[in-house]
Nucleic acid binder design. Structure first.
Length: 766
DNA sequence: GGCCCACGGGG
DNA sequence: GGGTACGTGGGCC
């Protein structure tokens, strides 16, 4: 039988088994069981073999030669059921390695299987669990090539009112659409189970399902005593928890949380810096969604259920449509890194890079360094922070006719060009070095280090693909591949700097950053010599304009050519784009204004970076106003921007405002007793509790500041209890509207009082 | 000015 | 496999 590999796990039930999940060439669901013995390595020291014989769990020992750093050494490969336990028994006497790899990861690495590979399996076939085909493998081998399989993909979205599920919707790629609502939660969950079993998707897509939908579903199923079997193997929904994330897993189906992927791995590629389903859909699909406040949804639930069902279904449809763009990218990343789509879509850059290196090291007979123990990781964390990229402070204000350059894969090309690797750092006996600017570190030139060799492979593959793309060959697939390669290459610097990483190296990270600073500064200097005004620079990018009205394009191209002739190794400066306008905005505290700007491109699209009034603790009125002001300023309509602000002030003062527009949402992060200071949260939590409403960790509410005496928190009231005549207009003008608008307009030299009609210094309607 | 607490996504 | 991130801003005292 041939099947396409999508997912894997392991069980130790009767004997160690790796379970492979996928679909066959007819799209039928497949589970393959393959026995696989766990093992780990120990440095072969005198007497170790004898001692191992006395340890009960040890089943088999093999001698192998592998590289430890640059030296060939003898190791023992020790087969046993629980590598971590056996390692504890021998670690005092010798160094142990690769004892903490999850069994399915070990298996995929050793077999050289990559996700999305087609595998040919021979063995005993039987029916079982919720799979169309179950095979106990006698032999599995990799097949050449093969297309992506036909997968059943289903998106899911839920609606919650008063912390209870009242509605859910699904949309699958066979055209099935359904929204189900009920006051009876148990019934709702039963319907969900039934739909999962009947539609039987291979993949389930959500938007923030890890932290929200499945978390709520799991808790509500418990609360209702409902058995919620969404999986194929009869196991319950479970969460793979890690430090600050948890990942919802449905055995036999691959749950992809699109938000987890977009916010971790795609964020830099997107124009938007807000990763709401609305914004991401707008950018990737060209269509967004209606957004509603919590209060609006509550009202809809009471009186417009059909409309709410439509709203809910639309969210599932958007998630499904996003799969069209994002799944191929996730698959490309999995094909390159060797990590399962479930994992690769949730990893950080650093983790991806590390697993890629683990795989490559195994291929080359190199022992992977161990991840640090807690104390070691803590010690690494306590070192002086590594000095990061160079930031050229922006010229605050509005500028026209802008060109943006950036180094193509700055850190990867630095790592390759200067051979930055833990083994080449200050290598003894080496006479030919690269010397790091302003540091004493030296990297041997005589032999290519492991990390630079791997990064070079990635960069070369990417260059090859880009060549093919230029030749016009099957663009979509190539685009996805080069995206995956780019992500992986860029991840390496972050891995050097990550205290939890196996190949962590303070010196390598410090050196990469030092070279990076050196070359961006050189680019800034050279741009100046070419007649440009440098507006802003950060780490690997440079924003420039010409001091006069000449068009920037021809000069930019000339400069690029000159600059690239000077750069060493594989380093290269790219033209990122041209912009009609750019607004650089100073920071509130401190005087460095990095990472805060808004750009208007030649097609009229606005990119905003680093502005804070996108958060739910700003009211909608202030958030929308800030966006509008940015857009108007970029379009050269300062007067209109000013007028818009004055209008908003006026509307607040004359109470022509819906409460929804000034409601501020926030979330309780702890139980009432644990609040040390009086603030909006503790005040509202007490009120909720007194009214017998939920007020625990995670409870979200909206509030409005009422007029009257006392502190702001004293005057906070739940939004649905405040009437139009009760809100504090002064607060909303002075603490929400003006700060949001002034943040932008002060860069153009306006004074706060100019935003108020009639030259008032401070707004007060009293 | 120092501390406390929140933001991110979802409803 | 996991021993809460990360940088920043508003409100309280």
């Amino acid at each position: 039988m041939k099947f396409c590999l999508l997912d894997a796990d392991y069980s130790l039930d009767e004997r160690p088994n790796v379970r492979l999940f996928g679909v066959d060439d007819k799209g039928m669901s497949v589970m393959v069981l393959d026995s696989f013995e766990p093992y780990f390595y120990a440095l072969d020291k005198a007497g170790l073999k004898e001692r191992l014989k006395k340890i009960k769990d040890v089943r088999k020992v093999e001698s192998v030669g592998m590289f430890l750093g640059v030296k060939q050494k003898k190791f023992l490969r020790i087969f046993c059921e629980r590598p971590s336990d056996v390692r504890d028994a021998v670690k005092a006497k010798t160094d142990c390695f690769e004892y903490s790899l999850n069994l399915y990861k070990r298996y995929l690495i050793d077999k050289k299987f990559y996700p999305l590979d087609w595998l040919d399996v021979k063995g005993k076939e039987r029916k079982g669990l919720g799979f169309s085909r179950v095979v106990e493998a006698a032999n599995i081998k990799k097949m050449p090539g093969g297309k992506a399989p036909a997968l059943k993909i289903m998106a899911l979205d839920i609606e919650v009112i008063d912390e209870k599920i009242v509605m859910f919707s699904v949309a699958d790629n066979a055209g099935y659409r359904e929204a189900v609502s009920s006051e009876n939660e148990k019934e709702l969950l039963e319907r969900m189970r039934e739909i999962f079993q009947r539609r039987d998707p291979d993949m389930v897509a959500t938007y923030n399902g890890d932290q929200f939908d499945f978390d709520v579903i799991s808790r509500r199923a418990d609360a209702n005593g409902a058995k919620l079997l969404l999986s194929r193997d009869g196991s319950p929904l479970y969460f793979r928890k890690s430090m600050w994330t948890s990942a919802a897993k449905i055995k036999g189906r691959v749950h992809i949380d699109l938000f987890a992927f977009v916010s971790r791995l795609m964020s830099q590629q997107l124009q938007s810096e807000v990763f709401t389903l609305d914004e991401v859909s707008r950018e990737l699909l060209g269509r967004g969604k209606e957004t509603h406040s919590m209060e609006q949804l509550e009202r809809m639930w009471k009186s417009e259920r059909e409309r709410m069902e439509k709203y809910c279904l639309n969210d599932s449809e958007l998630a499904l449509a996003l799969c069209g763009n994002l799944l191929p990218q996730i698959f490309a990343l999995s094909r390159i890194s060797g990590q399962l789509p479930f994992d690769s879509s949730r990893m950080t850059f650093g983790a991806l890079s590390e697993w890629y290196l683990v795989r490559k090291a195994a291929e080359k007979g190199i022992m992977s360094p161990n991840p640090p123990h807690y104390a070691e990781a803590q010690a690494r964390r306590e070192r002086v922070p590594i000095k990061g990229g160079y930031v050229k402070e922006p010229l605050a204000g509005l500028h026209s006719n802008i060109a943006v350059f950036d180094f193509r894969s700055l850190y990867p090309s630095v790592i390759v060009s200067f051979n930055i690797s833990p083994e080449t750092l200050n290598e003894k006996g080496c006479e030919n070095y690269n010397e790091v600017p302003a540091f004493k570190h030296r990297f041997c030139k005589e032999r290519t280090g492991f990390v630079p060799a791997m990064v070079r492979e990635i960069l070369e593959k990417r260059a090859e693909i880009k060549k093919k793309l230029k030749a016009g060959k099957s663009a979509a697939l190539q685009e996805q591949q080069q995206f995956g390669l780019k992500i992986l290459a860029n991840a390496t610097y972050g891995m050097f700097a990550n205290p939890n990483a196996r190949w962590y190296s303070y010196e390598c990270a410090e050196s990469s950053a030092a070279y990076g600073r050196h070359y961006i500064q050189q680019a800034i200097t050279e741009a100046g010599k070419s007649g440009f005004v440098a507006l802003y620079g950060d780490t690997d990018s440079l924003f420039v304009k010409l001091p006069d009205e000449r068009n920037v394009k021809t000069d930019a191209k000339k400069f690029l050519k000159r600059m690239n002739a000077k750069l060493p190794g594989v380093m290269e400066l790219d033209l990122q784009g041209f912009y009609r306008k750019g607004l650089f905005i100073p920071q509130k505290s401190g005087n460095v204004a990095k990472k805060r700007y808004a750009l208007l491109d030649e097609k009229g699209a606005v990119t905003v970076r680093g502005l804070e009034a996108v958060r739910r603790d700003w009211c909608d009125l202030a958030k929308n106003l800030q966006r509008e002001v940015i857009r108007l300023v970029l379009e050269g309509r300062e007067k209109d921007a000013l007028e818009t602000v004055r209008n908003a002030v006026n509307r607040v003062a004359t109470r022509q405002i819906a409460i929804d527009e000034i409601a501020i949402s926030t979330q309780l992060s702890r139980p009432l007793e644990q609040y040390k200071t009086k603030n909006v949260h503790s005040v509202i939590a007490r009120k909720l509790k007194e009214a017998g409403k939920p007020a625990g960790e995670g409870t979200i509410f909206s509030y409005v500041i009422k007029k009257g005496a006392g502190s702001i928190s004293d005057r906070a009231e739940l939004a649905d209890k405040v009437g139009k005549d009760d809100y504090d207009a002064d607060y909303y003008v002075n603490n929400q509207i003006l700060p949001a608008a002034f943040r932008i307009l002060q860069t153009l030299g306006y004074k706060q009082e100019e935003l108020l009609a009639g030259g008032l210094k401070k707004f007060s309607h009293g």
